[in-house]
Nucleic acid binder design. Structure first.
Length: 755
DNA sequence: ACAGAGTGTCATCAT
DNA sequence: TCATGATGACACTCT
């Protein structure tokens, strides 16, 4: 997958960028029509995990194109034919216009067309205001009242380049059919408007992105989703509102938006996800069904076979391996859904945001579809999507509790020894050992079983075989073999980072970051980034071609790239519509997501991300450094960041190893204790057995000796005679004195042997 | 207030 | 010699 990603991003996209830069008109629309007709998205929704590919944003916003890259189904890239097809279609490549979301949520106090005055954030996001010429028009038309079919076609044409064949006739016919089917439900024509769908796709994307980024998603999703969704009072079905204009829609209050959204998506009591995602969720995150499958499909074959209790270890290893295979299958399923699914909900579903995640009303679309730097893509894809290992780990984490629950349920409610060992085993043991002896094997069984089960539970709770997860991670994440740091994930930022950043004021070495805080203040991230005086930057001078490598996008103004690394934690600034205190909260929220080194890097205007600084191979790292004219202070900071970052990961590995060692020792101690008790029980058993045999021999001796008679028919005196076992197996009667003499002789021999 | 866990960081050594 | 990993020790935050 990684190679695919690299191939796609570094090869194809750059080629595309190159073509567009030299003036070849790039439009993916035909390609999409041939491979993925827009109707598919109209019917099924968004289909690709490529949610943030914003390359060519500038050019395409300029052109007013409207195809969102999410519509690109990644699966098709697996075939060379598709690649070829794509390359052939490069001259008509389409690029998303995320500004649609921006101005839709923009609250225009003037009540005019809001997109006509793009805020600085919009400008940044869209790589300048070049789209100004098109987006107001689009905005009015797309959000305008329902239009006739002819107008609709015109509208489509307006969104897409005229005459480019955005929608084939079949598509239009299908749209028409669908529209006729749904029009009685109150759905307006524009629900099938491709550009309209596209905007909703953007919203979906933002929604999913927002979920990935924590509690910031919902607000943004509300604001955008609700702009044109109303609920039928009778049926409860949601449909696009026939709102006369953008302003009216955006004039909805947040409360109204929330209400509308919740009415639109009856998520259920504690569910954030639409019902449509539930199936995916089930597929991706095996819950009851999966665990029950494991119970029936995995346990039973093991349970039905009669195995020695000493094969327990092997049994459990088998079981664990099967479960891991199941988990891998689940991961594959997850990956497929991620690539083929209707939207990015699964991403968040895998990370299982708490159903009751509080809604941050103040956080909006800021994390949605950041301007095209693949740093965002890498943070999303390399660590979550394109790296199945991470996705697998998430799936594993999801799988594990379910499995453990299922197993616990099974084991807890069932006689364990009865399950794993047929009754005859235990009964046999009991019979041979007799009633007076404890049942060593039986007790051992239960003990071993419980211990093994607890160990298994422990392994599951520890993250379901973390060793394998890390191996998988290393296998797929060849870019950085040490990418265990989950804090880099945009979803699961470490609270410690937040804490460390918040604790920076007490740290002597963090004065710069503190000052940078005060400088940056509570005005909002992106605006801050934009307000940075570029000319004052010590380093980071000049656009470097490497940007095309590291930030795979086609920004034409290099200056816009300079501070994009800072935006890896920022996302878009859609906060211009927010109250200042909301911005403050968001700023604080995002500030706390950044580590101290990230703050330092930001304060020092380091022109690339900490992730690159830390994880790039040394050759690439040095190459990267050589591309920029960095001051000594910056270089020092960069090297410190790299050292600290690597050391941080090393410390995490070290602690993990230490913990594993402790756990292994704990397990070994338990095993040894079980072995010891088992040996003790066996010893007791043998001693008892020996005692019984001695008793039997004694009884036989008495019986035989008592039956012997001399010539007079009198019994022999046990004091004068004794029975002796001859070497040939016979038994002879000899005088006691001779027997004692022989016995003494034997003792001497034994003593001599011992010496 | 305190203890303990978790984490980041530094120093140091090993590879 | 440099880069990097491993690890003990310390400081800090959070629960």
């Amino acid at each position: 997958m990684l190679s695919l990603k690299k191939y796609f991003t570094e090869g194809l996209i750059q080629f595309t960028i190159l073509l567009s830069l030299i003036g070849v008109r790039v439009d993916v629309d035909t390609y999409l029509n041939s491979q993925l007709p827009p109707l598919r998205e109209i019917i099924l929704g968004q289909s690709s995990a490529y949610t943030q590919t914003q390359f060519h944003n500038l050019r395409n916003t300029l052109d007013g194109y409207g195809i969102h890259p999410k519509s690109v189904d990644l699966d098709y890239y697996f075939t060379a034919r598709r690649l070829l097809n794509q390359v052939r279609a490069l001259d008509r490549f389409h690029v998303p216009t995320t500004e649609v979301n921006a101005w839709l949520v923009h609250r225009d106090p003037e009540g005019s067309v809001s997109s006509a005055q793009p805020s600085p954030a919009i400008t940044l996001e869209n790589s300048s205001g070049l789209q100004d010429g098109t987006s107001p028009d689009n905005g009015v038309r797309e959000s305008g009242p329902e239009q006739g079919f002819g107008e609709e076609l015109e509208d489509l044409g307006a969104v897409a380049p005229p005459g480019n064949g955005d929608l084939t006739k079949e598509d239009i016919d299908l749209i028409d059919i669908l529209w006729r089917q749904d029009i009685d439900l109150g759905a307006g024509r524009e629900i099938f408007d491709y550009s309209h769908r596209q905007k909703e796709s953007e919203v979906d994307k933002e929604l999913s992105d927002g979920r990935e980024h924590g509690d910031s998603w919902r607000n943004g999703g509300n604001e955008t989703l609700d702009r044109n969704l109303l609920v039928d009072g009778e049926t409860g079905e949601s449909f696009p509102a026939q709102v006369p204009g953008v302003v009216d829609q955006t004039a909805l209050s947040l409360e109204e938006c929330l209400r509308l959204l919740e009415a639109t998506f009856p998520f259920g009591e504690n569910s954030e996800f639409p019902a449509a995602d539930a199936s995916h969720l089930n597929e991706a995150v095996p819950g009851e069904s999966e665990s029950s499958a494991i119970q029936s499909g995995l346990l039973s074959p093991l349970l039905t076979e009669t195995e020695s209790p000493f094969d327990l270890e092997q049994q459990w290893q088998d079981l664990m391996s099967i479960m891991e295979m199941q988990a891998m299958e689940v991961n594959n399923t997850t990956a497929e859904i991620l690539y083929n699914g209707t939207n990015g909900d699964l991403l968040t579903a895998n990370y299982s945001l708490a159903p009751n995640t509080p809604i941050n009303q103040n956080v909006s679309l800021h994390q949605a579809s950041l301007g095209s730097c693949t740093q965002d893509l890498s943070s999303l894809f390399s660590s979550e999507i394109e790296s199945p290992s991470v996705a697998s780990s998430s799936a594993l984490l999801q799988l594990a509790p379910d499995n453990s629950t299922g197993l616990n349920t099974t084991f807890g409610s069932t006689n364990l020894s009865g399950i794993f060992f047929p009754p005859q085993l235990n009964s046999t043991v009991n019979e041979t050992t007799g009633s007076e002896l404890p049942d060593p094997l039986g007790g051992l069984l239960d003990e071993a079983m419980l211990d093994e089960i607890s160990l298994m539970d422990l392994a599951i709770e520890e993250g379901f075989n973390p060793v394998q997860a890390s191996q998988l991670e290393e296998e797929f994440d060849s870019d950085s073999g040490l990418s265990l740091d989950s804090s880099h994930s945009p979803v699961s930022f470490s609270s410690s980072e937040a804490s460390s950043s918040s604790s920076s004021s007490s740290s002597s070495s963090s004065s710069s970051s503190s000052s940078s805080f005060s400088e940056e203040g509570a005005v909002g991230y992106s605006s801050d980034s934009e307000n940075v005086d570029f000319e004052e930057t010590e380093g980071a001078v000049g656009y470097q071609p490497e940007y095309s490598k590291f930030c795979r996008m086609s920004y034409q103004d290099p200056s816009e790239l300079r501070y994009l690394p800072y935006l890896e934690h920022v996302g878009h600034n859609h906060t211009y519509n927010m109250a200042p205190e909301s911005k403050e909260k968001q700023s604080d929220f995002l500030d706390k997501q950044m580590s101290r080194d990230e703050h330092r890097a930001r304060a020092m205007k380091i022109p690339f991300t900490n992730d690159k600084i830390i994880n790039l191979p040394v050759e690439e790292f040095n190459e990267l450094l050589s591309k920029y004219q960095l001051s000594e202070t910056q270089l020092s900071l960069i090297r410190d960041i790299r050292r600290r970052g690597k050391n941080k990961m090393a410390a995490q590995n070290c602690r993990k190893r230490k913990l594993d060692t402790i756990l292994n020792l704990e397990r070994d101690v338990g095993d040894l204790q079980r072995d010891k008790s088992k040996l003790l029980r066996e010893k007791v058993e043998f001693l008892k057995s020996i005692r019984q045999m001695k008793q039997k021999v004694q009884n036989l001796y008495q019986e035989v000796f008592g039956r012997l008679r001399d010539e007079n028919g009198q019994p022999y005196s046990p004091n004068q005679y004794s029975l002796q076992y001859a070497s040939d197996g016979s038994v002879i009667l000899i005088p006691r004195a001779l027997a004692d003499q022989q016995a003494r002789r034997k003792e001497r021999k034994q003593k001599d042997r011992r010496k």
